[in-house]
């Protein structure tokens, strides 16, 4: 009975989290709203990484580059054409990021594991260099102002506005990824993650699926970069280059390959310095590094893995074993 209640609670926890997300700004102050918006933005980009690595097995250090690309494309386009309504900006950024994802994905197709990680890291570095180099367009090292989200005369400048845009998007992204994970494309991505030989002999076009997942990760990174620019309103390439480790941390802490992992991971990572504050912030990267190592060693499947262990004690897995065992006995009798 208690187990049942607990399972039900765990099942609905994501929905509770989402509800809290939406009710958020009504009850909390601006600072907390800002933090939660940041969580949503981090959860979106990390979801892309999570799909690439956790679902499709394609290691990428390219997310900070795509995120910066999305932020700058949005800022450059909208500062020239302020009449563009923000949903259209999101679409433009998404399409541009997807295109860049395909372009970057193409030469990376033959690479995997460590080499893929290095190549995508190189891509990120190149993006930052390019941003600094294209001074007249991007403000170079100085950075540039990013226009707020706007529809017509209605400017969405407050933190609450960005909060709602990001919160709605993060929910849609989670639902979309949940759907994908249970259907044809998600299965194909899992297949290439686990065994490329088997996947290709099942008719899966490895190159096409890798390009798809690259573009998908790029879109999520680009869009979250755009939202980040809405939130902070002034962008520098160094903001993005400093984020590389965070995405991995969020992914691992939440639970690699789990749909809601990035949400839990980003809550943890963003609340941690808030809870400890002061001294902690000076050594944040060190602490993050230690946390990453600890999780990889002790809880490689993140919070979700820890939950799974708790849930293993319930009846679900025992049933599987019983089934298996009874079958072996039956087979021996034959």
């Amino acid at each position: 009975m208690i187990n049942k209640t607990k399972n039900r609670f765990l099942k609905y926890l994501p929905i509770i989290v989402i509800a809290v997300y939406f009710a958020g700004p009504i009850f909390i102050g601006e600072y907390l709203t800002y933090l939660i918006t940041l969580m949503a933005i981090m959860a979106i980009v990390t979801q892309g990484l999570n799909v690439m690595i956790g679902y499709a097995g394609q290691f990428s250090f390219g997310q900070p580059g795509f995120m910066a690309f999305g932020a700058y494309i949005g800022a450059i386009v909208v500062s020239r054409m302020p009449w563009i309504p923000f949903p259209l900006t999101i679409l433009i950024v998404a399409l541009a990021s997807a295109l860049l994802g395909f372009i970057i994905g193409f030469p990376c197709l033959r690479l995997s594991g460590f080499y893929l990680a290095m190549a995508t890291f190189g891509f990120s570095s190149a993006i930052f260099e390019l941003i600094n180099y294209l001074g007249p367009l991007t403000g170079g090292n100085e950075g540039m102002y990013a226009p707020a989200a706007a529809i017509g005369k209605w400017k969405l400048t407050s933190t609450d506005d960005v909060y709602y845009i990001a919160a709605i998007t993060v929910v849609l992204v989670m639902i979309g990824v949940k759907h994908i994970s249970k259907t044809r494309t998600g299965r194909a991505w899992n297949a290439i993650r686990d065994d490329e030989i088997a996947a290709s002999s099942m008719g899966i076009n490895l190159q096409r699926e890798k390009l798809k997942v690259f573009a998908f990760g790029a879109v999520l990174a680009g869009v979250s970069g755009l939202f980040y620019s809405y939130l902070i309103r002034y962008i520098e390439s160094s903001y993005f280059s400093a984020m590389g480790l965070s995405f991995f941390l969020i992914m691992v802490v939440g639970g690699t390959g789990r749909v809601f992992g990035p949400i839990y991971g980003s809550i943890f990572i963003i609340m941690l310095p808030q809870v400890f504050g002061g001294k902690f912030n000076q050594h944040m990267n060190l602490v993050y590094g230690i946390i990453l190592v600890l999780f990889v060693l002790l809880a490689p499947n993140g919070f979700y893995g820890i939950w799974d262990k708790i849930r293993n004690k319930s009846s679900v897995n025992m049933n599987l074993r019983d089934k298996l065992f009874s079958w072996i006995k039956r087979e021996r009798v034959k």
Partner: peptide, 16 residues
Amino acid sequence: IAKHLYVKTRFWEELL
């Protein structure tokens, strides 16, 4: 997974 060739769905349909 072996039904990959026979499941006729598009990416955006799967998202939705």
